[in-house]
Amino acid sequence: MTSDESTAGPGPGPGEPHHDDLSSRLNWLRAGVLGANDGVVSTAGLVVGVAGASGSAQALLTAGLAGLLAGSLSMAAGEYVSVSTQRDSERAALDLERSELAHTPDAELAELAGLYEQKGLTPELAREVAVQLTARDALAAHAETELGIDPEGLSNPWHAALASFLSFTVGALLPLLAMVLLPASVRLYVTVVSVLLALTLCGWGSARLGRAPARPAVVRNVAGGAIAMAVTYLAGTLLGASS
């Protein structure tokens, strides 16, 4: 064992993710799950509502495709704008931190030491940690401790937009294909069951990847989807009856 290995302390356990890996995974997870849920629920609500008003396969296909394209593009654009705004804010905060480090390094060192004291270190140890981390990478030390930002791991808006677009499209295809391809006598029932199963799987998967309890996520997904389909079907039925 080398001296570096003996003094470095224990690393993450076999199944324990690094913070940066977890943050990156959760960013993708957020965009992907939100897109898939919206794709399944909004398209299912749309085609179920149309089915309540009309049994025309052409009307279902037209409404479903329109909803798929509008929803996927809207999700992608929304994610791009949201993540771009977040990244711009992070870059501005990092620029300000660079300026402060360049012009008032002693004050920034004292500030960093104070932050470590607030975390429970003694003043002497906090000062030593701050000095060593500043010597290694002052910006990274301040960004992580003071701002909660990894300068090397800023979110990519294009990644988030693509993840939302693809996940929404995949989610939307399930209710759309079930409604269009199946016989009229069973398509509504099969669509509802398949959507609820998809939402169950999506809720379970998101909870597992995020290391959160599965039951609340599944219940939220399934309940939200069921309510959306019930409301839109009722609205479609009423509109169809009145026309």
Rank of each mutant, 00 (worst) to 15 (best):
V190H: 06
L147Y: 09
S185A: 14
A160N: 01
T191Q: 07
L177S: 11
T169V: 05
L181E: 12
S155L: 13
R187M: 07
A161M: 01
M179A: 14
G171V: 01
A184L: 15
N156K: 08
L181F: 12
E146M: 14
R187F: 07
P175W: 00
S164K: 06
P157E: 05
P175K: 01
I149W: 08
E146V: 10
A178W: 00
G148E: 15
V186R: 07
P183M: 06
I149D: 06
L181M: 11
H159Y: 05
A163Y: 00
P183D: 02
G148A: 10
M179F: 07
L173A: 03
P175T: 07
A161E: 01
P183T: 01
L176G: 05
V193G: 13
E152L: 12
E144Q: 15
A160K: 01
S155G: 11
L174G: 02
R187S: 09
M179N: 04
S155T: 12
E152Y: 12
L188Q: 11
A178D: 06
P175L: 05
E146I: 10
W158T: 13
A160E: 04
T169Y: 00
P183I: 08
G148V: 13
S164H: 06
S185D: 10
P157H: 02
S194D: 12
F168C: 06
W158G: 03
P151Y: 08
A160L: 10
D150S: 12
P157C: 05
V190E: 07
G148H: 10
L188P: 12
V192L: 15
V180F: 11
P157W: 00
P175G: 08
A172E: 03
V193R: 11
E152F: 11
N156V: 07
H159L: 13
V180K: 03
S185N: 12
E152Q: 14
V170T: 11
A184H: 09
P175N: 09
V180I: 10
V190L: 07
E146S: 15
L162R: 02
T145P: 04
A160W: 00
L154F: 04
G171L: 02
L188W: 11
D150I: 09
S155H: 10
F165N: 01
Y189R: 14
V190C: 13
L176C: 07
A161V: 04
D150R: 07
S185C: 06
P151T: 09
E144I: 15
S164I: 05
A178Y: 01
L154W: 02
H159N: 13
